[in-house]
Design a protein around this nucleic acid. Structure first.
Length: 351
DNA sequence: GAACCGTGGCT
DNA sequence: TAGCCAAGGTT
């Protein structure tokens, strides 16, 4: 079964910036562990299409783990904006600094040493050990779970089925080509054994696949029922000074959008109280709607021209330093709703 | 084990 | 369109 999978991978492996190409591999070149690690962290719960440009941007700005470790926190958070799960960016920096401080700037090459680092869990430790260092570790991500649940027609619902699926995956792990095997199972899951309408007809594992034999592939994997998303509301305050500076707030390290730049606002709940960050003639200009993983949010967008005096909350960011692209998406939507109503004398419409 | 933590693309 | 989904980790 492993041979058929590897043969398929040799012909159909997806080309990605952090992978070594056939020529490199023929020359015995290994991929850069820093680039592999960066890609794996970015790919956590995130599509390849979304990761490509972020990975390119990060490696251009910070070519080595030492470069990243030396970067200011705010720069890294701003570059991560839009990718989501911002704890990943905070842990990315912690991990880079730990690799420099504790490992001499070189990534450790074992699963156990990798999993001890911030932001590296069971999946990422196995993936880096296998892909960067060719160790026979078993990677179990959503793709592998789906492939195994079909291959062995597992009826146990996820996430309870995880140990069972992991055991199946471990038995299939190739000790001859661990690096290729890890990526082959995931590529198969991403391109052939897809969540909907799997391409069983061209699957290299169609012969041994139990779900295929029984016609149950569309019902695998079985997943536990999802919980309904609560609705929350809040107020967001977009204030500008006469010189065009924006009143912003760096959010606390922990919790939702932790460490990211945003607009001051109220609590988010069923019936939020207004909470203006500075005395001013605030006026309502619209709403910003954003759906997070576990709740849906509607923000009432308030705007005002602010006096030069210090605000009660937050700090001013100059017009030239302000970039909507450095905001998490919910805050970027607030900005987009507010901006047309905040014409500032002489600030123009550029940037 | 379960809650928390984003986002954009696809159907 | 409204859900579903993606190379998960931390608490």
């Amino acid at each position: 079964m492993t041979a058929a999978l590897l043969a398929w991978y040799d012909r159909h492996a997806r080309i990605m910036p952090w992978r070594t190409g056939p020529a490199d591999r023929a020359a015995g070149l290994r991929p850069d562990p820093y680039r592999v690690w960066l890609s794996e962290v970015m790919l956590q719960q995130t599509t390849v299409a979304a990761v490509r440009k972020y990975h390119e941007r990060f490696t251009a700005l910070w070519p080595t783990v030492a470069d990243l470790a030396a970067a200011p926190d705010a720069d890294v958070m701003a570059e991560w904006a839009g990718l989501g799960y911002y704890a990943r960016a905070r842990n990315l920096l912690k991990c880079a600094r730990a690799v420099v401080a504790e490992h001499g700037g070189r990534f450790p090459d074992t699963h156990d040493a990798l999993i001890a680092l911030p932001g590296i869990g069971p999946y990422t430790a196995a993936a880096v050990a296998a892909i960067a260092f060719d160790r026979p570790e078993t990677v179990v991500d959503g793709n592998v779970e789906r492939v195994m649940s079909r291959l062995f027609d597992v009826k146990t619902p996820l996430p309870a089925a995880k140990p069972e699926l992991t055991a199946h995956a471990a038995r299939l792990t190739s000790h001859a080509r661990p690096d290729d095997h890890a990526q082959a199972v995931m590529d198969l899951g991403a391109t052939i054994c897809t969540p909907k309408s799997p391409a069983c007809g061209i699957c290299p594992l169609r012969a041994p696949c139990l779900a295929r034999q029984r016609g149950t592939e569309a019902q695998r994997p079985v997943k536990a029922a999802k919980k309904p998303k609560p609705e929350r509301r809040g107020f967001a305050y977009v204030g500008r000074r006469a010189d065009g500076a924006w009143l912003m707030e760096t959010r606390p390290e922990k919790g939702l959008l932790g460490g990211m730049l945003g607009f001051p606002g109220s609590d988010w709940n069923e019936a939020p109280r207004p909470a203006p960050p500075a005395p001013a003639a605030w006026r309502e200009v619209g709403e910003a709607r954003h759906v997070f993983t576990h709740f849906a949010l509607t923000l009432t967008v308030m705007v005002a021209e602010l006096p030069p005096s210090n605000p009660e909350r937050g700090h001013f960011v100059s017009a030239s330093a302000f970039r909507p692209g450095a905001l998490p998406t919910a805050m970027r939507k607030v900005h987009d709703a507010a901006a047309p109503h905040l014409a500032v004398e002489g600030s123009g419409a550029t940037g």
